[in-house]
Design a protein around this nucleic acid. Structure first.
Lengths: 173, 173
DNA sequence: GGGTACATGTAATCAGTTACATGATTTA
DNA sequence: TAAATCATGTAACTGATTACATGTACCC
């Protein structure tokens, strides 16, 4: 069982610190911005608050510069690495949440004015095409770790499916 | 522009009251449980709190039974219907969020113990198959409004893609 | 050396979640 | 009529968001 006082945010922080060896909050922010943050955004303020909490809990170790930016660098403790491992070992029953305002609006389409749903769909096609292009750019990079590349593959498939879906919706309205 | 004091929850409530003509919080809960709640869950407590707020704002009208369960029935006001229409008319730039703990764990797969990712994938295949079956059951229903059926279609596609994806992940681990 | 973007944080607020609690209806 | 479950809410907490604030490095 995962510790119930730890949220997904906690594990993302632990996972990033583990993956990067040691890092600052800003490093986490940068890493998230081009990877998992596309699926699940974490505002940077949490990436400052959460490591502090995890340090309290003994899962991270903190070292602060005494000069210049006085930035804090975090490392996993043994307890932190164990917590992460246990979490990774345990499959999840939490179903996927797909939070998409466009889908929400589509759902209530019967109450929209004529043409609104079509406009919504066209806009969505465009948005998903752009995101697909971003993913393809990232995928062209050579230095991506295998599992991260697999994650990205899921994103690519989702975006392709979304482009196809919204195109059909636009055509049928 | 949508009113910035209104959250997605607000619009779901407005949309449901509009779609159902008039309803109680429990009616909303029931409707969500078999539809949009699969993508974007709203805990029932919010479906009691939010209509109260919207009534304050003049977007809903409330009528309460004086006997029995004393339940509150809500109806859209003209202002409420307008707010909903304006929201529906405006396409969104908010990108889709796909919150999935399994994807998060996959992303950090390099730090997992051998076999963990495979276990995760097999579990996910199963979970997505089950959800796919639920969607197919709902889709068999004859009384679904067209846009709601389209929304469901997106769900079906997502689940099929997820089953395929996680099957491949399981096989490659 | 002044502007701009990068980097690092804090504070206040609030939506959302979890937990609690109880009344009403149905069914065995 | 007792148990179970359906239905309707409230309360407390807190993670997350938004907004604020400032320091540092780089570039023209």
């Amino acid at each position: 069982m995962g510790d119930s006082s730890l949220t997904p945010t906690s594990y993302v922080v632990l996972g990033l610190v583990g993956a990067l060896g040691s890092c600052t909050s800003y490093d986490m922010k940068s890493a998230i911005a081009v990877s998992i943050g596309y699926f699940w955004p974490f505002p940077h303020s949490q990436l400052y608050a959460e490591p502090a909490r995890l340090t309290e809990l003994g899962l991270l170790e903190q070292e602060q510069e005494t000069t210049g930016r006085r930035r804090r660098t975090y490392t996993l403790t043994a307890a932190g690495r164990n917590a992460l491992r246990r979490w990774l070992a345990e499959p999840t029953d939490e179903p996927t949440e797909i939070r998409d305002l466009a889908i929400l609006k589509l759902f209530f389409g019967a109450q929209a004015d004529p043409g609104d749903v079509k406009g919504l769909a066209l806009h969505a096609v465009d948005a998903h095409r752009r995101r697909l292009a971003e993913y393809e750019t990232i995928a062209r990079g050579l230095d991506i770790e295998a599992h991260q590349r697999t994650t990205l593959e899921m994103g690519l498939r989702y975006e392709r499916a979304a482009v196809a879906f919204w195109t059909e919706v636009a055509n049928s309205e």
